[in-house]
């Protein structure tokens, strides 16, 4: 089926297509909690940038429940889970070269992290 001009403009004018899901899923983390990004190297799609794998950060904010791209991008399950804004210091990520007062804030899904005791 072809998409006509009215439909295309209508879709782009609407609220678009959020991947936020209106489902109840228990968050694995809470604001203020310390986490470590898992060292993962999936063969397929992922949204966990390599430069942060293994780094420790602090949960800044819970954005709610979203589709999990690693499975969904390959036609699999939506695997609904929370996405958080996680704060990493530049020192933690880059070591000595990291700026003293620089921080990175990155969106991270539940499945990419473990709690740091």
């Amino acid at each position: 089926m072809s998409i006509n001009a009215a439909q295309a403009i209508g879709a782009s004018n609407s609220r678009g297509g959020s991947t936020k899901l209106d489902v109840e899923v228990a968050p694995r983390f809470a604001a203020g909690q310390r986490i470590r990004v898992r060292k993962i190297n999936p063969a397929g799609h992922t949204r966990m940038p390599q430069y942060l794998r293994g780094c420790e950060g602090v949960i800044a904010q819970d954005f709610g429940v979203f589709v999990f791209p690693d499975t969904h991008a390959h036609g699999g399950d939506q695997k609904p889970q929370h996405v958080y804004s996680v704060r990493f210091t530049a020192k933690e990520v880059w070591g000595r070269e990291g700026g003293e007062r620089d921080v990175l804030l990155v969106d991270v899904w539940d499945d990419y992290m473990d709690a740091v005791p």
Partner: peptide
């Protein structure tokens, strides 16, 4: 003294 926050937009936010 300014804190620089770099936001890496990895999700749909």
């Amino acid at each position: 003294a300014t804190e620089v926050r770099v936001w890496d937009s990895t999700s749909e936010v």
